[in-house]
Structures are given as structure tokens and as C-alpha cells.
Simulated assay, not measured.
Amino acid sequence: MARSHLTLAALATSAVDGLEVRQAAPFGSGTHGDYDSAVITSTDGRHFIVRVPTSERAEAEQSSDLVSLRALSVGIRGRLPFEVSRFAGQTPVDGTRAVVYEFVYGDPVQLGAIPAGEGLATSIGRAIAAIHTLPTSFIVDAGLPQHSPHDTLRASVTIMDRASATNLVPAALLGRWERASEDSALWQFVPTVVNGGLTAESFLQSGGSVSAVVGWQGLSVDDPARDLFWLLGAPSDAVAESALDAYQLARGSVDRQIAQRARLYSELELAKWLLHGAQERNTEIVDDAVALLHGLVDKVENDMNQNLSHNTMPVMAVDEVEAMLDERDRRDDA
């Protein structure tokens, strides 16, 4: 049974020293419905979110999020053009814990409602670029995960192999993914700081610009394309194009293959959905995943823009190569 907002308010007062609650109200229960949540207004006008995980997965996610929020120091946050919530306190409850965060303001973003062109899409692109230009040193200092291009490729191949073992993935897709995994040029990238779990719901917006980013449990050093693939699920391809153009402009990136890797990760999400259904022995999920995979075959076979192979033209200029090496060295030294 879900905890009431009044119960959660009482837990918040135990978690935060000196907190006096003036008002409490139920709050959205999170992406997967795995939290009991409430928004709290204190007597001094401040707002907080209190959350209690209701599953082991959510508890692990919340723990990872707390580690990441602590790693995001004042100096690191000052480099970001949006707000990030702060940990305010915690208290034990029923074998888990209630965690209180400072409230961050903004309206939730829905993928299907992002307009193409200058505005929210480009603001999202610039926000992601700001994350990716953070120094990797603070990730190392916090003991957060670091993945090399080889690690990322190996993880992708593992998903492909497991999906292939179900005998439910169309042969055309398996061949497409195998060719991508063998394209060495596709995997030549400089790992960056990534959020690691971005979706449209990660962003809050105000006035058509990103005001906050929530959910940092996947913070790590990894392939920057992992923070971009979700944009390809927008109803209009122009949304992803607008965001990616703004992203590339903000970063001054020379990663010519980032769009192709993002597309591959987007396709592998369907493989993950299939594997989830198989693991749960849920025929409804499996059937849905199979239908989506077959739909993907039709889409990629009839659209040359869905190509996964690396871009061979134009060849990188010497100054671009030097810029990429300088960026890597700068991240290592920061």
C-alpha cells in the first residue's frame, strides 16, 4: 500500500534537521512507478521532494543517484546551464530509506511534444553538450564507472549475442548489427562524462529552455552517443536533427560517427525489450518486441538515412585531429 503524502511529510521532518512542513501533496511516482513520493513546502517557503523506493531496483537506482549527486560539486554544477537537485537528508523506514531532495523547478518534457528547430530541441542539445564537456577527473575521484570504447563495444556485442540466441530477431537486423560491431572506425571516439540514463523525462523546461536535469544514477565516463539515442524516438526526425546540430555546435565535436552509434543504441533498446520479456516469461512483451523489430527492418531497409556504417567523407583535417587529441588531454588533466 502506497504511503500517504502526510506520512511522507513526517518522514521528511525526520530526515532534514529543522524542517517544518507547511504543506504536503502527492507527487509523480517516478518513471517506473517505483517510488512513493510527495512534494513538501516548508514554513520558510522552500520546496522539497521526499521519495521512498518500493522495489529493490528503485532502491539501487536511488543509491546510485545519491552517489552521483554528491560527486556533482558546486564547481561542477557551476559549469552546467541548468539546475541539478541537491541531497537534503534521509531517514530509515521499513528496511529502506526515505530520501529528501531540494526541489528543482520546471515543467516535464514529453518526447512527442518537443518541436523541431530553435527552442526546446536545441536547448536539450546544448544541455547534453554541457554534460559532455565536464572534466572526467571528478568521475575518477568519485569512483564512478569509466568505460573505454572497447568496453562499450563489448557491452553492445553482448546484447546482440543474447538477442540472437532467442532466435526471434530478424536475420537482416542481426547482420546489420554485426557489421556495425565490426566497423572499427565507428568505435573511435573519446569517452566523455555522460548522464547515462537520459530520456525526455530527465528534462524539465521553462519558457522553452531546459531548466533542470533529474536522474543521475548512470553518471559515468562513456560513449557520448549513449545520451543522444533516445532523441531518435521522436515522431519527427527533425527533432533529433535540431538537437544534434545544436549539440555538435556547442561541443565543437569532431566525432563524425556519433549519430550512427546513437542509432545503433536506439535499435538495441528493442533487443533489450525482447530480452526483458524473455527473462520475465511475458509473452505480451516478447510479441511486442518482435513486432517492433520487424517494423524496424522495414524502416531501415527503405531509408538510406538509417545507415549505421561510419562516415568516410570528408576526411578529418589535421587541425580537427589535433583538436580531438587536445580535448582528450584536457579531460585527462582537468
Rank of each mutant, 00 (worst) to 15 (best):
L274E: 05
D227A: 13
G106P: 13
V93L: 06
R281N: 13
I285Y: 03
I76Q: 11
V99K: 14
E61Q: 10
I131E: 00
R77F: 01
T136P: 11
G95H: 14
L69D: 14
S123K: 01
S137A: 12
V214K: 15
R126F: 00
T158E: 15
G207D: 07
E83K: 07
A262E: 09
T91W: 00
R51L: 15
E280D: 08
S164I: 15
P115G: 00
A238L: 05
R328T: 03
R330Y: 02
A163G: 13
A15H: 04
R328M: 03
R46A: 07
E102W: 11
W273A: 09
S137D: 11
Q279P: 10
T283I: 12
G112T: 05
V74E: 00
L19S: 05
R3D: 10
Q23F: 15
A271V: 06
K272P: 02
A98R: 06
I49P: 02
R79E: 09
A155V: 08
K272Y: 13
S64K: 11
R86W: 01
L308G: 01
D298Y: 08
R328I: 01
V286A: 06
S85C: 07
V169R: 00
A200W: 00
D44T: 15
I139P: 05
Q306K: 10
G207R: 10
A165E: 06
R251V: 14
D34L: 10
G196H: 02
V21R: 02
A98N: 10
V214N: 06
V190R: 13
Q260S: 15
R97Y: 12
L249N: 14
L228D: 04
T96N: 11
A15F: 03
V254Q: 08
A238T: 04
Q217Y: 09
V254P: 01
A12F: 04
I49N: 09
E284M: 06
G175R: 12
I258N: 11
G295A: 05
A238M: 03
L244W: 01
V210E: 01
R3W: 06
R256F: 02
L8S: 01
L8N: 00
L198Q: 01
S14H: 05
E320D: 04
N195E: 06
A243W: 00
F103L: 04
I114N: 00
S164M: 13
A113D: 03
L134A: 04
R51M: 12
R57E: 08
L270S: 06
